[in-house]
Amino acid sequence: MKLRGVAALSALALALTACGSGTTTTGGGGGDITIGLAISTLDNPYFVALKEGAEKAAAELGVKLTVADAQNDATNQVNQVQTFTTQGVGAIIINPVDSKQASPAAKAAENASIPLVAVDRSVDEGKVASEVASDNVQGGTLAAIELGRAVSGDVVHLQGIPGASAARDRGRGFEEGLNSGGIKVVASQPADFNRAKGLDVMTNLLQANPNIKGVFADNDEMALGAIKALGDRAGKDVQVVGFDGTPDGLQAIEDGVMAATIAQQPDVLGRKAVEQAVKAAKKEVVQGVVDVEVKVVTKKNLAEFKK
């Protein structure tokens, strides 16, 4: 009885190891390259899509991908990159929590002679083999132009987390694009990239500015909160433009409550980053800068983005 139990257990253990090695050893030409992906946060569908794009590319290229989630903490992320360097990964992909605070991570990778690929956000200081990003400033400008095309009059700008690089860049781009249309920003307030805060802040701003015609939100989550606050007015006498092109954002465009969003292609970002990282790990030539297009999504071209 006891023996049989032991036998069953060892069989189970064998089966488990077989399963385990099945997922870790990889077919294709990747050899046994491991790529470390230090992602800023998985608390956001956008970065989940980026991770999924990276995972798909890794599977196709036959490399192993290890993901570390910094939970939006820059210090955490430096530690995670340092851990990657001691694990002997072939290349590290960093999606910085903050561009300005990523240089210690870059230095750690450089000291260990491991190539570093930056994705979605840049690394301000340090050696980077390749930078895969969509242009947030350009995206902000496109948003201003699109909002100017949809409405004229007073508009509100919902900002991301104060001081975060994406909020800075999108906001700057938005302001640069303002003079192209007949819109004027009457209020700019932070809602921290968060849907619930977008709802509250928009509700409050509506009290002080009931006659606004448009809203630009630094991401789709806040835009969706603003749409909730606007209720029936959304898509009719107030046009909302978001940023990111998340599934919920695209759905809002289809429903006619959101005028446009600036779609980045997070899955493409993840994919391109892994491609460059694998090249770097194999010591092949990498592309210094990979631009992934941002696109204005409206009801007209929605079909291209909905999957």
Binding site: D43, N44, P45, N194, R195, A196, L199, E221, L224, G225, K228, D248
Partner: peptide, 15 residues
Amino acid sequence: LLAGRLSSAGPQAAV
């Protein structure tokens, strides 16, 4: 309540 106000439950809600 929070999810109800947004008609959606978010993974980053109430952080």
